[in-house]
């Protein structure tokens, strides 16, 4: 059962990484225009512009 000492922190850290990634996506306003993003992904235009905010 000693393996738990490594496994539990490892699983929590990986979960926390996911949470940090979620925070980052939230901060970089990736949920502001779900409707537009779903169309934009199909556009062949090179879109390097960040949203003006």
């Amino acid at each position: 059962m000693n393996v738990l000492i490594y496994l539990i922190p490892a699983s929590i850290i990986m979960g926390a990484l996911g949470l940090v990634a979620f925070f980052w996506s939230l901060k970089s306003s990736q949920y502001d225009d779900p409707e537009g993003d779903r169309h934009r992904i199909l556009s062949d235009r090179w879109d390097k512009e960040p949203p003006p905010e």
């Binding site: 502001d32 225009d33 779900p34 409707e35 537009g36 169309h39 512009e49 949203p51 003006p52």
Partner: peptide
Amino acid sequence: RSARVNLTLKRATIE
């Protein structure tokens, strides 16, 4: 300078 459309809000923001 730049224009960005937000389709969810049906709006364009322009600099």
